[in-house]
């Protein structure tokens, strides 16, 4: 990163990323894709929370909360979602107050492109606000 942060600094913890999709396969595949594009060096903690607990399509509050706890290193957690119940479940959990780690944010970003931007940025040692901004900027990437 050009901001001079050093992710090797033991005091510097990486932002965690949670990927919430209606489909377990989509969440874990996007996590794998994003981590694969990080390159060398440290990789930010990433956890998928896909589908329902019984393996169906949908959103599980339990899986989301467990994934957020698993990636929380104290630097904040950025949550990216696909649509519908994934968005609403994360919002409802955030409104609950104590279900997700402190400094957990629902990031408004496209799921795949945003996940790649978030994981790459977080792995470089960026703080939560910078990770959120990078993921959101993925909306501006046109394909026409």
């Amino acid at each position: 990163m050009s901001d001079g942060r050093d992710s090797q600094d033991p005091a510097e913890q990486l932002v965690g990323i949670v990927l919430v999709s209606h489909s377990a396969a989509v969440a874990s595949s996007v996590a794998e894709l994003a981590k694969g594009l990080v390159g060398g060096g440290a990789t930010a903690p990433v956890a998928p929370a896909g589908g329902t607990e019984d393996g169906g399509l949908g959103t599980s509050a339990e899986l989301v909360a467990a994934a957020a706890a698993a990636v929380d290193r104290g630097a904040g957690v950025a949550v990216l979602t696909d649509l519908g119940s994934a968005v609403l479940t994360v919002k409802a959990l955030l409104a609950e107050g104590d279900e997700l780690p402190a400094r957990t944010r629902l990031v408004d970003a496209p799921f795949v492109e945003g996940a790649v931007a978030a994981v790459v940025t977080a792995s470089a040692g960026a703080d939560l606000a910078a990770v959120e901004a990078a993921a959101g900027e993925a909306y501006a990437y046109r394909k026409e």
Partner: peptide
Amino acid sequence: GRQLISTVGGASGPLYGT
């Protein structure tokens, strides 16, 4: 409400839960 958010699995969970 908390139970609905945890168990429904679709959008009606967080909506009715809230």
